[in-house]
Design a protein around this nucleic acid. Sequence first.
RNA 1: GCCGGAGUGGCGGAAUUGGUAUACGCGCACGACUCAAAAUCGUGUGGAGCAAUCCUUGAGGGUUCGAGUCCCUCCUCCGGCACCA
Length: 818
Amino acid sequence: MMKRYNPKDIEPKWQQQWSDSNLYQAVDFDKKRPKFVMLTEFPYPSGDGLHLGHVREYTLGDIIARHKRMTGHNVLYPMGWDAFGLPTENYAIKMKVPPQQVTKNNVANFQEQMVSLGLSFDWSRTVNTTDPSYYKWTQWLFLQFFKAGLAYQDEIAINWCPKCKTGLANEEVVNGKHERCDTPVEKKTLQQWVLKITDYADRLIRGLETVDYPSRIADQQINWIGRSKGAELDFKVEGHEGEYLKVFTTRPDTLWGVTFMVLAPEHPLVDIITSSAQRIDVDEYKKLTQSKTEIERQNTDREKTGVFTGAYAINPSSNEKVPIWIADYVLSGYGTGAIMAVPAHDERDFEFASKFSLPIVDVYKKDSPADNNFGGEGDVINSGMYDGMRTSDLRERIVDDLQQKGLAKERINYKLRDWIFSRQHYWGEPIPIIHCPDHGAVPVPDDQLPVVLPEVDHYEPTDTGESPLAEVSEWVNTTCPTCDKPAKRETDTMPNWAGSSWYYLRYFDANNDTAFADMEKLKYWGEVDLYLGGMEHTTLHLLYSRFWHQFFYNQGLVPTPEPYKARRGQGIVLATDGSKMSKSKGNVVNPNEIIDQGYGADAVRMSIAFLAPYDQTTPWNSEGIAGTYRFLQRYWTLVQEHIDASKVNLDDSVDQVALKRVTHKAIKRISEDLHGMNFNTAVAALMEAVNELYKQKIELPLGSPAWTETIVAFTKLLAPYAPHIAEEIWNQLGQPGSIHNSEWPVHEDKYLAEETTRMAVQVNGKFREEIVVDKSAQESEILAQAKSADKVQAHIAGKSIVREIYVPGRLVNIVVRD
RNA sequence: GCCGGAGUGGCGGAAUUGGUAUACGCGCACGACUCAAAAUCGUGUGGAGCAAUCCUUGAGGGUUCGAGUCCCUCCUCCGGCACCA
């Protein structure tokens, strides 16, 4: 009696078996096999459980990991928990449970869901960023930045989320709103810990040339870093001896076109140079600027505003006197916070000059006068001795000339800002610093790490800009490690990007308590061979962790200059109607519900692989799951029929060429698709092959050893996608061990050859008929055969043949004329 | 505005990189099995036409024996950045 395909009978059984036998554990220092580190981003274990985005990422990673194991690699495919963060904290506040407990529950739930999907993670290497034995090393690594001068404190105006009551990094602000809660951010001046990522700006760009990232990811990072090459020019301020107004410009060649200067309202020189007559206006404008939100300030449609300071600057080249204004279209955080305004050749300056009736002087004739865009190159005019030069030549010349007078230097500017690292929240790693009245900020000595997050009664953020830890006086009050006098602990915590900036390194040596990881293990595993993750992390986690890693490399802490050899970003899974899945819309698809409906994990895995190319955003097809389930069932049925037949039919005298051809064709296609990460077409190829096998069984009865051979090979091809059914069939066929440790099949060209080929025949490039030609046929024979085909005859009769094109194995094109 | 990516049946998507457009799957229709339904199996399925045939890869032009694929001019959608001097 044939057994029906029921995933519930086989999936939990094999999951248990794999776990009991530690099937997926990676081996440190394995010299026999090449190593392969396969990484998918570790999740934030939310209370909602896994969503389809996770399933896509981890399943596709799992398919690669399983395939790599079968091709003889020592595969490290780990998983962990990025568990610090606001949602847990908010839940803890609401439900009055410790976040530690919430995290524990959520982690257990996530892990259970992952196991039920048949993901082959090596659970012996799990990391949890909230575990003191893990964040001990996050703190230790932070102190390396501090000791190297790359972590510093500064009183600066930062992005502040009034809802979450915390400071934010630039990367966390999207369109003027906090990316997590969509609240418009405000500016707030606070004493902050800052990491000097700008020191690595160039290095972060250059490093991209040494790694395999898709251009959309590399370009986005380059864009974000925003390198621009120009010059810093010094303008004297009239009546203020010794004060220089420094500006950054990419177009020093337009210097003679400067008709006014603009400072950001926050610029420190403003108070010094403002004339008494203008002081009231200036102060009022500064106040007005402060009251605006980031969204208001970023709105480029807004009319330009500004006020005159009453002061004048001297153009270092023309010695002309120009008025100094302040305006909020000049940003205090970029360049020097001041610009030279060239209204003739800059759109913003033009708008400003037009509004306030300031002069506009052209300093070059544009190459294409019809083109009224600002920018571009041309022949210089109105620039004294420089007239007649090309703008592109003057650009360097004028800087050289001024440099001799000490009034200019070449300068590179970046849009990238230093990384605001302080968070005024409870649920994060305490920053391991002690503030001593005599010694300032003193690092907590290594032997006192970790600085454990103290247990508190309430986790609510405060309005004061201080974290709730500030109220835990027995924790805050300590002694200075240097002088033993009373001192206070730093009460800010780290952002949730801290733990995730180095977690992959911990997988190489997850349980080490004397170092963040052993150097020999770091050297063995090296870098991450392939890292899958979301596109939304491109200028957040991915950039941050490259920065950390590059710093570690400079410090001799890691053996490789870059963390990730190759990166791929997967597309978002949308709801069936093409909208974004969200809890508020109630259109979130829960993967475990699909499994529980009876389709099973294998069908879910195949369905998600089949959906679309991995990097493409695509809607979830809730009915598509039936297709992959049907496919698995169809294959299962074929195998069961074969097993039943093999008990009576062992006749193997029949011709097997066709069977071998189907098998080897599938091996070739599916192996190639896996290398190219074309999971969707690989699944299509599996389906096509099974359709073929169904045709073959009519000619060649099931039950023979040739069929066993075919099914063994084909089941291996299926194993990365549908690991449970593959293991079950493997077992039923009496094969030794686990299929997931078996050897991936290799195709042989000799089985692919066919005696005949189909060729298309075109007339004037238009398809007319397909002919079947003998493999050994010569060009002349094929052309003759093509011309004699009925449909072809109908189109060439009575016309003269001008040309005959013959593409071996593909087509014939007859070009005719009336 | 700048930087990426994409437009192919009713739907998700294929197309050996310039060579038979619509593979594979979903859906739909018809048939078989069934008292019936589901499941399963089989057949069909881009559009127009009885047919021969014609049309069809966002629009228009070009190169070519031949274009979904290459070039030019547009349009639309998605992602990122955005008063960055």
